[in-house]
Design a protein around this nucleic acid. Structure first.
Lengths: 163, 163
DNA sequence: GCTTTTGCGCTATGATATAACGTTTTAGGA
DNA sequence: TCCTAAAACGTTATATCATAGCGCAAAAGC
């Protein structure tokens, strides 16, 4: 029986300065409106998440934070991430044990993400019908959806190419 | 800002001897048919997973295995689980870092599971339309679904009751 | 200004998962 | 049957991800 393992992803870096700016601005709006406190650390973590603009692990964030000079502990990152999640500013992807900035923090949507099992690439499905169907099916079983994204493991086009 | 934490689940134990028997029989059929080797350890792990008949963590399985007398290492469990997953006999739920026996190992379906964020209760959605929709949406973005279950975080009826 | 809550630094530890290597078992061909 | 290669497994060590618990400081509410 064949038991192949997956390979890690490697993609070219990319300057997401604009994304960071936009995300931080949105975060400030959201936090002001809802009286959440976007402290310097939280803002910094959000920036790091968006600068990456790909799923990023807590300890990667920690490493980035450390470059600022301090000696932050995991707690620092996890606390900031907990806040950001609850404020709807970042999503946690359980599949990858990683975090991703939320595009539209203003509306409480629960997106669907395709996650490549091989390279960890992520794509978001934007489909209101799918969303509604999920909500209805959940409802029929007595469940109420929350804002967590639905993760769908799949193989992406690049990885599907034999090799 | 309110930041509430989730509470663990607690449900009455339940004798799943029948489920175990059925699951093991199915596993033996599948493995015979596809020439997979259902070794004693693998079978034992499958039994433990089914005896629980709820998502069970790798280290819980390890503890159960240890009761048999040996001193198994995590590897033992993870290797067995890897086999069982690839054989389609158990699912891994990333949301819970836990494993669950697959009801219908004979057909390669990718089920959808509702997972309660509060109590970890799990319910399976059986919906071919949903399944097809997911597959199509994935396809449109160049992704091909694999056999991994889709996990949908939600709040179950019991946990939704205020209190 | 006092109290309560919230945020955060810090140390430690828990929980989950894998690497690496050697030995044993199994399957299948010479 | 014996040999060989692959697969399964034991064992030790370590990597990775996440939380507990405590004390201090800053901020919010009275």
């Amino acid at each position: 029986m064949r038991m192949s393992k997956s390979a890690p992803a490697q993609r070219p870096a990319h300057d997401h300065r604009r994304c960071v700016e936009r995300a931080v601005a949105a975060a400030e709006r959201v936090c002001t409106a809802r009286q959440f406190k976007l402290t310097p650390i939280r803002k910094r973590v959000l920036e790091i998440v968006w600068r990456q603009h790909e799923p990023i692990g807590a300890y990667e964030i920690l490493a980035e934070l450390a470059k600022d000079g301090g000696k932050p502990a995991p707690q620092t990152v996890y606390r900031a991430l907990e806040f950001l999640q609850q404020a709807g500013l970042v999503h946690r992807l359980d599949t990858l044990n990683a975090f991703l900035g939320c595009d539209r923090p203003e509306d409480t949507h629960s997106g669907q993400f395709l996650v490549c099992s091989r390279c960890r690439r992520v794509a978001e499905i934007e489909d209101s019908v799918l969303n509604r169907t999920l909500r209805e099916r959940a409802r029929a079983l007595g469940f109420r959806l929350d804002a967590s994204p639905v993760e769908i493991k799949a193989i992406c086009a690049q990885c599907a190419i034999p090799g």
